[in-house]
């Protein structure tokens, strides 16, 4: 068995994959960039010609979509249900109003002080057998983090048919199996204050997602600092004491949605809520440097925390 690794940039983030396999592993892994490019072409909100943006242009109408887009919208709606709307995929108009109207690297002049609450996620309708979707009139989908989680899981499931693997899409990771002689894939949660490892975990047949207001920030003309975690109810950047939240969950899109939900609720309320969710565990870093975790996170990863 050989361990293959590959790194490239797509979907606005760094993507890294590792696969333990025989000689066929090289060819299997080589297909990854093309697969990610195909996903991005459908799911990106920064490409006017993407399937997602075409759907957004036709808000209020039933639109036939690809299986890829249907699955991600389905995952997004499910995540909204699980978080009681704290995660809301219809947050795009609010993001645009806050100035996040282009990929982060290009954000220049934040625009406005007007805030636009997100649309009603329950108004997203799906006809699965016909592969049709209708979003509420005047609304628009942003599948950002959910799409990354979904893509990481999809790719990991495909790679897992060849061997144990880890897929890392900009910090959101899915592990399938473990490399020979190891209890899992080693993952470090980084401290947003200095990028040093905060905790180290073994990931096996599960996923981790990290979200935060620490990185994607920009300044408004009024001198305010904005970040990309928007409260769907107010349309404003979330007022929270959480700088970063990491959630471990078997389902990567759910982990991503839970991380955002924790941020929106604040550290203690968010973690208390998270600890009541099925198979969820997590850790937060507050803006004052304090680090909190759910008790099951510590129990699961105590060995690595203690080392």
């Amino acid at each position: 068995m050989t361990l293959y690794a590959m790194t490239f940039r797509a979907m606005g983030c760094q993507i890294h994959a590792q696969l333990e396999a025989g000689v066929e592993g090289h060819a299997v892994l080589s297909q990854l960039p093309a697969k990610v490019e195909a996903m991005e072409a459908r799911l990106s909100r920064f490409r006017p010609d993407s399937e997602l943006m075409q759907l957004n242009k036709r808000a209020g109408e039933w639109v036939k979509v690809s299986t890829t887009l249907l699955e991600v919208i389905q995952a997004a709606k499910h995540a909204a249900q699980l978080t009681n709307g704290l995660f809301n995929p219809l947050v795009l108009p609010a993001m645009l109003a806050n100035g996040y109207d282009r990929s982060f690297e290009q954000i220049a002049l934040p625009l406005t002080t007007a805030h636009v609450p997100a649309g009603d996620w329950q108004g997203i309708e799906l006809r699965r057998s016909a592969r049709e979707v209708r979003i509420p009139p005047s609304s628009a989908l942003d599948l950002g983090g959910i799409a990354k989680g979904w893509a990481a899981e999809k790719l990991a499931d495909e790679l897992a048919q060849t061997g144990a693997c880890l897929v890392n899409m900009g910090g959101d990771m899915v592990a399938r199996g473990a490399p020979q002689g190891w209890q899992g894939w080693q993952v470090e949660v980084s401290d947003p204050f200095n990028d040093a490892p905060l905790v180290s975990l073994w990931l096996k047949d599960t996923a981790i997602a990290t979200s935060g207001s620490d990185f994607r920030q920009w300044a408004t003309q009024a001198g305010k600092t904005y970040h990309h975690i928007v409260n769907p109810q107010t349309g404003c950047p979330a007022a929270t004491n959480v700088l970063m939240a990491s959630v471990v969950h078997p389902h990567a899109p759910t982990a991503e949605a839970y991380a955002k939900a924790v941020i929106l609720q604040g550290a203690e309320a968010g973690l208390s809520w998270l600890s009541q969710q099925w198979h969820a565990e997590g850790l937060v870093v507050q803006d004052d440097g304090k680090v909190l975790a759910t008790a099951n996170f510590v129990l699961s990863h105590n060995e690595r925390l203690s080392s």
Partner: peptide
């Protein structure tokens, strides 16, 4: 292109970038 590594490479989970 994929490269061969001798042992698993530790990954960092942080805000998407």
């Amino acid at each position: 292109a994929p490269v061969v590594v001798q042992q698993p490479v530790t990954q960092k989970s942080k805000s998407s970038r």
